[in-house]
């Protein structure tokens, strides 16, 4: 390095102090960091296996393994199954965000983010926003494969789109639970363990995979209370018809509630972690 005689120009670009007064810092910084997250996803596409192969695998498994027994006809079953699987897989995908963050946050670059004058929660919000692409991809694959094996939207495209957006919104809010776990746990494996322990009763304890009248009373009570049941009912209602207003309201309330509780907790855990 022989050219180290002239230091970089120190006047050409605005200093940190001038920039800081600009508004919407959280949004701006989160978007920049979501871009980082997207670039990483693009460079390591193997991380997308859970949102590309798993939706296909689940359709095959549930439709052909259980469909005959549960509904008598696989086509009947597919119509109720597919919206439910869409919800189930996005919920699983939200656990993965917590696992990834647990690993990511240990890297030195988070020390740099923390020592910079940016909105405190921006590194977390950015990562979660960047992971929305995973939900989009998942839903596209889920619906695409569903169509290939005979699933048909019986309402209208706008309602179907609303179903997709609502499912994504719920998954986005639920992600903060796993971000919190990711901030508290020491190892990615622990996040996975805790995450999936919470996932199974949430995703399987619903009324869409099997008829609830075969279940014991205590399990029926859980299925009724389970927010994922409401999300699955909403998605099904918007895609193949049925009651929507009640479960949709329930979904939104749950989503907002989960976000309101777990977002601050996750940010606090992030800031306390050293």
């Amino acid at each position: 390095m022989t050219t180290l005689t002239a230091p970089p120009e120190r006047t050409a670009v605005p200093s940190r102090r001038e920039g800081a007064a600009r508004p919407f810092a959280l949004v701006r910084h989160s978007v920049a960091l979501a871009g980082r997250s997207l670039t990483k996803t693009r460079r390591t596409p193997e991380q997308l296996i859970d949102v590309t192969l798993q939706p296909i695998l689940f359709v095959v498994m549930f439709l052909y393994l259980l469909g005959g027994a549960v509904a008598g006809s696989t086509h009947e079953y597919l119509q109720t199954l597919l919206p439910a699987l869409m919800v189930m897989n996005t919920v699983f995908a939200s656990v993965q965000t917590g696992i990834n963050l647990n690993d990511d946050i240990k890297k030195g670059v988070f020390d740099r983010f923390r020592s910079m004058p940016i909105a405190r929660s921006a590194p977390l919000v950015g990562s979660v926003l960047g992971d929305l692409i995973r939900f989009v991809l998942l839903i596209v694959v889920q619906l695409g494969f569903g169509y290939a094996v005979g699933f048909r939207i019986e309402t209208d495209p706008l309602s179907a789109l609303a179903a997709c957006l609502l499912v994504m919104f719920f998954a986005f809010c639920l992600t903060w639970v796993f971000v919190l776990i990711g901030m508290l746990a020491r190892e990615p494996g622990a996040v996975q363990g805790i995450g999936f322990m919470a996932m199974f009763p949430l995703t399987f304890g619903t009324n869409v995979l099997v008829p609830t009248d075969t279940l014991p009373g205590w399990l029926q009570a859980w299925v009724d209370a389970n927010p994922v049941t409401a999300v699955m009912e909403t998605a099904r209602g918007l895609m193949v018809g049925g009651a929507v207003a009640g479960p949709a309201l329930e979904t939104v309330l749950w989503s907002v509630g989960v976000l309101a509780v777990f977002f601050p907790l996750a940010v606090r855990a992030y800031l306390r972690r050293t």
Binding site: V13, P14, R16, G19, A20, R22, A25, R28, H29, A32, L33, G35, R36, T39, K40, R43, T44, K107, G108, V109, D111, R112, F113, M116, P117, I118, A122
Partner: peptide, 24 residues
């Protein structure tokens, strides 16, 4: 830091541009 505080998965340019954008 003692351990390089840059992002392994990003390029050199991407790392510095990200920092610049975070500095508004």
């Amino acid at each position: 830091g003692q351990y390089a505080s840059v992002d392994e998965d990003l390029t050199g340019t991407e790392n510095l541009v990200l920092i610049g954008r975070l500095l508004d």
